[in-house]
Design a protein around this nucleic acid. Structure first.
Lengths: 234, 234
DNA sequence: TAGATTGTTAATCGATTAACAATC
DNA sequence: TAGATTGTTAATCGATTAACAATC
C-alpha cells in the first residue's frame, strides 16, 4: 500500500500531520474525481499519465501532477503512474481503504435517497443504522438498514462504534439533532440540512451546501443572459 | 433596489460584466449565508454591522465588509448596513429577486426530496414540472408539481420558458439526460447525480458534489484520530 | 535517439487578512 | 467627544500555472 509523502523534504512543523504533509483542501476535493476515473479504467490499463488524466478531467497537467504527488505515488517518466498504485494511494490519503461506521438521522425522501446510494461502501463510509421520529417508519427496513426511534440513539452509537452522523432531517430540527448526537459522543457530522450548525469547535462538520451551488448557477446564468442581451443590441 | 458597484473605480475591462464588476467565486458562495441570516432577523432590526455578521457566522469582519461591498450596498460608519437594503442587494446580485423556471428530471427519492423543498422560491428558482421514465409516477402529483413522461420534455421546456434543468436521476443515465435537455435548448444544469457531465463548454453546469465533501470529512476524521493516537502515546 | 512524461522550482494569480484614515 | 464602524490600501497567504532539467 502506498505510504504517502516520503518525497517531501523541508516541511515546516505545522505542514506535517503525524508524519505526513497536509494535503491542500482543493486537492482533497479533486481526489475523489481522480479515484472515480481510475476505478472506471479497464483492468488492462496498467499505467495512466497525468497528461491523460488532465485531458479527460479538464484540468491542467501541472495541477494533476501536483495533486498526485500529494498521494506519495511515484510516476515513471514517459510511462505515467501505475493505476493500481494510484487507486491505493488516493484511498489511503482519504482513509477510504476501509469503512467507518455511520448512522443517518431523518428517513424522509432525502434520507431514503442516501440510504439507497451504493457508492458509500467504496468511499470510506458504511451506514449501519438510521433514525427517525415518525413511528410508522420505525423497524421498517429500507435498503436493509433498520430504522430506529431516537430513544435508541446512544445505545446504537456505542454498540456499533459509530464515528459519523449523517443529518438528513428538515432544517428546523437539524441543530437539535446535531446536539443530540454530539452528546452521544459523535464528533463528525455530515450535514445535508440547509442550515448552519452551531457546535463546539472541535466537532468536525461538513455541509452539503445546495444554496452556495445554486448561487453560482444563478450568477452564471445572469452573466450569460446579460452577454446575450448585449449581443442582441450590438 | 440596490444597483451594484457604483463605488468601484479603476476596474480592468475583464473585471466588468455588463457594467458590473465580477464577484469572486468564494464571495458568491457566502452570499446565500448572509442572506439567510438577514432574512431571519426580526423586522425591528433596521441595521446590522459587518462586525456582528462576522461574529455570528464565524467569519473575519474584513471579509464580510469586502463581501458586502460587492453588492454595492453602502454602510453607515458606527451604524452598519440597512438590513432591507442588504437583502435586496444580495438578491439582486444573485438574480434571486425573481424566479427562473426549472424542471426536475428523475423523480426518485432524491428528486422527491428536492420537489419538497420550500426554499427555492425565495432563492431564484421555481420548479414548474418534473419528469421520469417510470410510468407509474407519470401524472401522479407530487407536491403539486406534475410528473411527466420524457416524451413531453421539449414541449414543456418551450411552453414554460424553462432555463434550468435539475438532474436527480441515477448517475448511470445522467449524461444521456443532460444531452437530451441540452438538445431541447437548456443551457444551465444543476446536477445532483454523482457523475461528471461531459457537455459543450458553453453549457452552465453546477454539481452537488457529495464525494468532495465526504473526502474532506474523511480526511479531517483521519487527522483527528491520528492526533488522538499521538496524545495517547505521549 | 527523440519525444513524452516526470517531479520540482519559480512566477503568477487571486483571496484573505491586517492596518488605518475617514466618519457619524 | 470617544468609540465603533466604515471603505480601502497594503501585506500576506496559498493555490495555480509556467518553465525546465532529469529520465526511461
Amino acid at each position: 500500500m502506498a505510504k504517502g509523502n516520503m518525497t517531501n523534504k523541508n516541511l515546516k512543523p505545522d505542514e506535517i500531520v503525524n508524519g505526513e504533509s497536509k494535503i491542500p483542501r482543493p486537492t482533497l476535493m479533486r481526489l475523489p474525481k481522480y479515484l472515480e476515473y481510475l476505478r472506471r479504467l479497464s483492468v488492462e490499463e496498467e499505467f495512466i499519465s497525468a497528461s491523460q488524466l488532465a485531458r479527460d478531467l479538464n484540468l491542467q497537467s501541472t495541477q494533476v501532477r501536483k495533486d498526485l504527488a500529494t498521494t506519495g505515488v511515484i510516476g515513471v517518466p514517459k510511462v505515467g503512474h501505475g493505476v493500481k498504485e494510484l487507486i491505493a494511494g488516493i484511498e489511503s490519503c482519504l482513509n477510504w481503504d476501509s469503512s467507518v461506521n455511520a448512522i443517518l438521522i431523518g428517513v424522509g425522501n432525502l434520507g431514503m435517497a442516501i440510504l439507497g446510494y451504493e457508492g458509500f461502501q467504496n468511499n470510506g463510509i458504511k451506514i449501519v443504522s438510521s433514525f427517525d421520529v415518525k413511528s410508522e417508519l420505525i423497524r421498517k427496513n429500507s435498503e436493509n438498514i433498520s430504522v430506529n426511534c431516537m430513544d435508541r440513539l446512544k445505545e446504537i452509537i456505542i454498540d456499533n462504534s459509530i464515528s459519523i452522523a449523517i443529518i438528513t432531517t428538515p432544517a428546523s430540527v437539524a441543530q437539535k439533532v446535531a446536539e443530540e448526537v454530539v452528546a452521544c459522543g459523535i464528533n463528525a457530522i455530515w450535514n445535508f440540512a440547509p442550515t448552519k450548525l452551531q457546535l463546539s469547535k472541535d466537532i468536525i462538520v461538513e455541509n452539503i451546501d445546495m444554496y452556495s451551488s445554486l448561487a453560482l448557477l444563478s450568477y452564471k446564468l445572469k452573466e450569460y443572459e446579460n452577454i446575450n442581451k448585449l449581443q442582441v443590441k450590438e
